[in-house]
Simulated scan of single mutants.
Amino acid sequence: MADSTLRFSRCLWLGCMEELRRRGAGTHESGCFVLGTSQGRRRRAVRCVYYDELDPRAYASGVCVLDGTAFPKLWEICRLEGLSVLADIHTHPGAAFQSEADRRNPMIARSGHLAVIVPHFADGPIWRHRLGLFRYVGDHRWTDLSGWRARSILKVSWSFR
C-alpha cells in the first residue's frame, strides 16, 4: 500500500522553516502543528500553528512541551477553519532522529499521524531526505519514513496538483 503524501506549497514550507528557525533562535527546539485538508491519501497543508501560540511556555525547558490546555485551543482553530491536524513538526539541535521522549510522547496519538523532525534548529538549507519523518501506528510504535523515502511522502511544490 502506498504511503499518504503531505503536500506543502513552497511558500508555506519555506515560511514554516523560517519561523521554526526564528522561534528557536538557534538555542532551543521549536515546533508547530500542520493544519490542512485530506482527500484519500492526499493531505494538503494549509497553515501552521506554532506551539508557543498555543502555550507561551512551550519552549521554556529547551525542548517542546505543551501543556494540556494548548489542545482545546488547537481543536477550536481546526473547528473554526474547517481543517484537521495533518502533522507536527519540531526541530532538534543536531541530526533529525526520533528521541525516546518523541517516541513515547506523540503530539497526536492517532494512527497515521505524521511527525517531522528538522535538524540543526532549522538553520541552513533544509533537505527533505535529511528530515526525520515518522508515521504513528499506535501503542507508542512508529514507522520510520526518513531518508530518501521522505521525499516521496513530503512534497513541496509551487502549486498543488
Results as ranks from 00 to 15, higher is better:
residue 116 V to N: 13
residue 65 V to K: 10
residue 136 Y to D: 03
residue 77 I to C: 08
residue 126 I to A: 08
residue 68 G to V: 06
residue 131 L to H: 12
residue 135 R to Q: 14
residue 89 I to V: 12
residue 66 L to T: 11
residue 36 G to H: 01
residue 51 Y to K: 12
residue 76 E to Q: 09
residue 60 A to H: 06
residue 108 I to M: 06
residue 22 R to L: 10
residue 78 C to Y: 02
residue 54 L to Y: 03
residue 110 R to T: 08
residue 102 D to C: 07
residue 22 R to Y: 09
residue 19 E to Q: 06
residue 34 V to K: 01
residue 74 L to P: 00
residue 31 G to H: 01
residue 146 S to Y: 01
residue 61 S to N: 12
residue 10 R to I: 08
residue 24 G to F: 02
residue 72 P to S: 04
residue 123 D to F: 14
residue 120 H to E: 05
residue 133 L to K: 01
residue 103 R to Q: 14
residue 36 G to E: 02
residue 23 R to T: 08
residue 33 F to T: 12
residue 107 M to W: 09
residue 93 P to F: 04
residue 116 V to R: 13
residue 62 G to R: 06
residue 72 P to R: 15
residue 116 V to Q: 13
residue 55 D to S: 11
residue 81 E to K: 07
residue 79 R to G: 06
residue 117 I to S: 01
residue 46 V to G: 15
residue 129 H to F: 14
residue 32 C to G: 02
residue 25 A to N: 05
residue 88 D to I: 14
residue 95 A to P: 04
residue 24 G to T: 15
residue 143 T to A: 10
residue 88 D to T: 11
residue 154 L to T: 13
residue 65 V to M: 13
residue 115 A to I: 07
residue 125 P to K: 05
residue 25 A to D: 07
residue 73 K to M: 12
residue 135 R to G: 01
residue 94 G to W: 03
residue 139 D to C: 04
residue 156 V to T: 05
residue 90 H to E: 11
residue 133 L to F: 02
residue 157 S to Q: 14
residue 10 R to D: 05
residue 18 E to R: 15
residue 100 E to P: 02
residue 73 K to E: 15
residue 138 G to C: 04
residue 116 V to Y: 09
residue 147 G to P: 00
residue 121 F to L: 08
residue 120 H to F: 07
residue 88 D to E: 04
residue 43 R to P: 00
residue 98 Q to C: 09
residue 39 Q to F: 13
residue 67 D to K: 09
residue 155 K to A: 11
residue 90 H to M: 13
residue 115 A to P: 00
residue 140 H to I: 04
residue 52 D to R: 03
residue 59 Y to P: 00
residue 76 E to G: 10
residue 133 L to C: 02
residue 96 A to D: 11
residue 142 W to M: 07
residue 124 G to D: 06
residue 70 A to Y: 00
residue 69 T to A: 04
residue 134 F to E: 01
residue 86 L to Q: 12
residue 38 S to H: 11
residue 42 R to F: 05
residue 77 I to E: 11
residue 78 C to K: 09
residue 155 K to P: 00
residue 88 D to Q: 10
residue 151 R to N: 10
residue 47 R to N: 12
residue 11 C to V: 14
residue 56 P to C: 13
residue 82 G to I: 09
residue 98 Q to K: 05
residue 67 D to F: 13
residue 151 R to K: 15
residue 117 I to F: 14
residue 91 T to E: 02
residue 156 V to Q: 07
residue 142 W to Y: 13
residue 150 A to C: 01
residue 62 G to Y: 05
residue 13 W to I: 08
residue 84 S to C: 07
residue 103 R to I: 15
residue 13 W to E: 01
residue 123 D to C: 07
residue 119 P to S: 03
residue 100 E to T: 15
residue 31 G to K: 01
residue 128 R to A: 13
residue 146 S to H: 08
residue 66 L to D: 11
residue 53 E to T: 10
residue 97 F to H: 11
residue 81 E to S: 04
residue 93 P to G: 06
residue 154 L to V: 15
residue 153 I to L: 13
residue 69 T to S: 15
residue 85 V to R: 03
residue 25 A to M: 10
residue 147 G to Q: 03
residue 89 I to E: 06
residue 111 S to W: 06
residue 97 F to M: 05
